[in-house]
Lab assay of single mutants.
Amino acid sequence: RADKQHVLDMLFSAFEKHQYYNLKDLVDITKQPVVYLKEILKEIGVQNVKGIHKNTWELKPEYR
C-alpha cells in the first residue's frame, strides 16, 4: 500500500489523460487495494451512477 500522496499523484496524472475511469482501470494504474483506492477517490472524485458514464469515476470540479 503506497503513501497517500503518491497515490494522489498517480490519480491526478491519470485524470489528466482521461476524464472518466472505471475502478478496475484505476486499480491497474495505481496497483493499490480496492478499499484503500476508494477511500482516496471519495475525497477527490465522484462516482457516476447513471448515464453514459455509469460506474466510472471522475474528479470533482474543484480538482479538474
Rank of each mutant, 00 (worst) to 15 (best):
V49M: 12
V34F: 08
K17H: 04
N22H: 15
K54T: 10
I44A: 02
L8N: 03
R64T: 15
V27Y: 04
L23Q: 05
D9G: 08
K50F: 03
F12R: 11
H6E: 15
W57M: 04
L23V: 07
L11T: 00
Y20M: 07
K38T: 14
P61A: 10
I44T: 01
E43Q: 10
I44W: 01
H6T: 15
L41T: 00
H18G: 09
V49C: 08
M10C: 08
R1N: 02
T30C: 07
P33A: 02
K17S: 06
L59Y: 01
A14R: 02
I40N: 03
V35M: 13
A14H: 10
Y63L: 10
E39Q: 11
N55A: 09
W57H: 02
E62I: 11
Y63K: 07
L8M: 12
P33W: 00
Q5C: 13
Y36I: 08
L59I: 07
A2R: 15
L59E: 01
E16S: 11
K24V: 08
Q19Y: 02
M10T: 08
E39C: 08
A14Y: 05
T30L: 03
Q19L: 04
T56M: 14
Y63W: 14
L23T: 07
H18D: 07
T30S: 04
F12M: 15
N22E: 13
M10I: 10
I29S: 03
K60H: 04
Q32T: 08
N22L: 09
V35Y: 09
Q32G: 02
E16R: 13
E58R: 10
V46P: 00
F15W: 07
M10S: 07
V46Q: 15
V35S: 12
I29V: 09
V35D: 11
V34Y: 04
L11S: 01
R1V: 14
K4L: 05
I40T: 05
Y20E: 09
T30Q: 01
N55C: 08
E39D: 08
L41D: 00
W57V: 06
P61N: 11
P61L: 05
K60Y: 01
A2T: 15
K31M: 11
K4W: 06
G45H: 00
W57C: 03
E39H: 11
K50W: 06
Y20H: 15
F12Y: 13
Q5E: 11
E58A: 14
E39W: 04
K31D: 06
V34E: 13
K54G: 11
G45Y: 01
Y36P: 06
K31W: 01
I44F: 05
H53W: 08
K42R: 12
Q47T: 08
N55V: 04
T30W: 02
L37F: 02
F12G: 05
L59K: 03
N55Q: 08
K4V: 05
Y36N: 05
R64K: 11
G45L: 02
L26I: 03
L23S: 03
T56I: 06
N48F: 03
V7A: 06
D25H: 06
E16G: 10
H18P: 01
E43D: 09
F15Q: 01
P33L: 01
D3M: 10
L11F: 03
L23Y: 04
V49W: 09
Q5D: 14
V46H: 13
V49T: 15
V49R: 13
V7E: 01
K4Y: 09
L41Q: 00
K42G: 13
Q32C: 06
R64C: 10
K4Q: 08
W57S: 03
F12P: 00
I29C: 05
L23R: 00
K4F: 02
K38L: 14
L23G: 00
Y20W: 09
T56D: 13
Y20C: 10
D25A: 10
H18Q: 12
K17Q: 06
H53N: 14
